[in-house]
Design a protein around this nucleic acid. Structure first.
Length: 471
RNA sequence: GGCCCCGUGGUGUACUGGUCCAGCACGCGGCCCUUUCAAGGCCGAAGAGCGGGUUCGAAUCCCGUCGGGGCUACCA
């Protein structure tokens, strides 16, 4: 029953403990991922705990967003979500214990009093004495002697002198427990074996250790991950482009690619492996190989990785992902036409690096050609008209109307005409899509189907004829 | 200011004393392939913050310095 006995030599119990004061950030997502990888790779248990003791900033909407982001990332948990605020009774009970034992005391000192004390004592930690009173906060008694060392899994031992540590507040004047106390109690009572969290908590850890010691609880192991920075070297924030999981999703990234990329931010399997499916991540991940230096989130590499995942995905899964994306983007009618969507995916799969690049490539299959004056003026000139007319014949007679046959017919045509391939293919591309960029031209024609292809090319021929008549 | 963490090319990283005049990947430049754009192939530019030590020998160990970051709340 004792917490320390449970912790030792068992499969790890980890927790992801976001505070719902905003959306789930990329840094938070990576923390969640590392916890999850450790749990899944070792038959351990993942606990999700919402640290909602900040009464002002925590909102149910933020909780919902975080849960949604985790769901999208396909990071699941075994216990929770638990609400830290709802465990307030436990925290209060523990505080009462400490006060009774004299390990904590009520104090009416204000923060100004504390500052004054520190000034007068050469920056030493604040030491008060029991001063019960209206609105007295509860402070933990911190020993003057010795040091508290955090034996970090990633950084090794980190030492903090106790004499510099304040008798810090563990409960507000109204009795509500504070973060550093609640966390320590929860980690102990939930029998967490490994606390994996951001580096920004390293300085908090001695406080939590002090709480645990006062409570006579065995502390968990700690691993503090280096923080993620933006391209400017500053702490990652909303100003740095797609900084939240939500934005990553909207930008058309695949969860598996995001997992792979995030795993690589601060951790590497070995010298030359970058592309790793999640199963491999789970198998190879280890806290010991996590680096100590902060990393910069670089969306360009994510894009590349995402492209690889997109290309190597089975078509069925690709179609599902595409359908979800197109629906999100406001083309709800497209996913309904599975047959055509599938054809579209088949020809665009190797072209798109993100799901959001899909629609521009395949919209010509679902809508009339785009009006792109630049494409026309660039491509539709000189021999474009005659070349298209000649191509019309090939389109009419190609049998079957598939990519292979079209390629054979059209390249034979190019040969006969004695022109450059692009002088036939680009006008065709503009005729059927309205733009100069599309999937392979033969694939595109075949996917469009003979009838619509003919209609579009005929219309383009007409248009070119009108133009030369009047000009 | 105090305490703490970190420092290999633009970015992520490999290598913890010799096999490294530093490898891989993204990005960048060039070439090839080629029906556009991608993809793919080949080639290339680009790095150990700086200064001292220790050592026969340092990216790797020590010290200093500079730089970046975090914490420093009756926030989490």
């Amino acid at each position: 029953m004792r917490a320390d006995q449970q912790v030792m030599n068992q499969s790890p119990r980890v927790r992801f403990a976001p505070s719902p004061t905003g959306v789930l950030h990329i840094g938070g997502a990576r923390t969640a991922l590392y916890n999850w990888l450790l749990a899944r790779g070792s038959g351990g248990t993942m606990v999700l705990r919402i640290e909602d003791t900040d009464r002002e900033r925590s909102t149910p909407e933020n909780v919902a967003q975080i849960l949604e982001a985790l769901a999208w990332l396909e990071l699941d948990w075994d216990e929770g979500p638990l609400s830290q605020a709802e465990r307030s009774d436990r925290h209060r009970a523990r505080i009462a214990e400490l006060v009774e034992a004299g390990a904590a005391y009520p104090d009416t000192a204000t923060s100004e009093d504390v500052r004054a004390f520190k000034r007068a004592h050469g920056n030493a930690g604040y030491r008060g004495e029991p001063r019960p009173g209206e609105g007295a906060a509860i402070r933990l008694r911190v020993p003057n002697a010795g040091e508290t060392v955090v034996d970090d899994l990633i950084r090794g031992p980190v030492r903090f002198e106790n004499r510099l540590q304040d008798d810090f507040v563990i409960a507000r004047g109204d009795g509500t427990p504070l973060y550093n106390f609640a966390v320590a109690v929860d980690d102990a009572e939930m029998r967490i074996s490994d606390v994996i969290r951001g580096d920004d908590h390293l300085s908090n850890t001695p406080k939590q250790l002090l709480v645990l010691r006062a409570l006579r609880c065995e502390p968990p192991r700690y691993a503090h991950l280096p923080l993620l920075h933006g391209p400017d070297g500053k702490k990652l924030s909303k100003r740095h482009g797609a900084a939240s999981v939500q934005e990553l999703r909207e930008a058309g990234y695949l969860p598996a690619a995001v997992r792979n990329y995030l795993a690589l931010l601060g951790w590497g399997a070995d010298d030359d492996t970058t592309f790793m499916p999640t199963s491999e991540l789970i198998e190879r991940f280890s806290i010991e190989r996590v680096g100590r230096a902060s990393a910069v989130f670089d969306e360009r590499k994510l894009r590349w990785l995402n492209g690889r995942f997109m290309r190597e995905m089975p078509l069925d899964a690709y179609v599902e992902a595409a359908a979800a994306q197109l629906e999100r983007e406001g083309h709800p009618e497209v996913p309904g036409d599975r047959e055509r969507l599938r054809a579209a995916c088949a020809i665009a799969q190797e072209k798109a690096q993100t799901l959001s690049e899909l629609w521009p490539l395949v919209r010509f299959l679902f809508e009339p050609p785009l009006e792109d004056p630049k494409a026309w003026s660039k491509v539709m000139r000189d021999g474009a008209g005659p070349n298209l007319e000649a191509a019309l014949e090939a389109l009419r007679t190609a049998e079957p109307f598939d990519s292979t046959t079209l390629e054979a017919e059209l390249s034979a045509l190019v040969e006969r005409l004695g022109v450059k391939a692009r002088d036939v293919y680009q006008p065709l591309r503009v005729a059927i899509t309205g733009t100069t960029v599309s999937p392979g031209i033969f694939d595109s024609l075949a996917a469009l189907g003979r009838q619509r292809a003919l209609e579009r090319v005929e219309a383009a021929v007409e248009r070119l004829r009108d133009r030369s008549d009047s000009g």
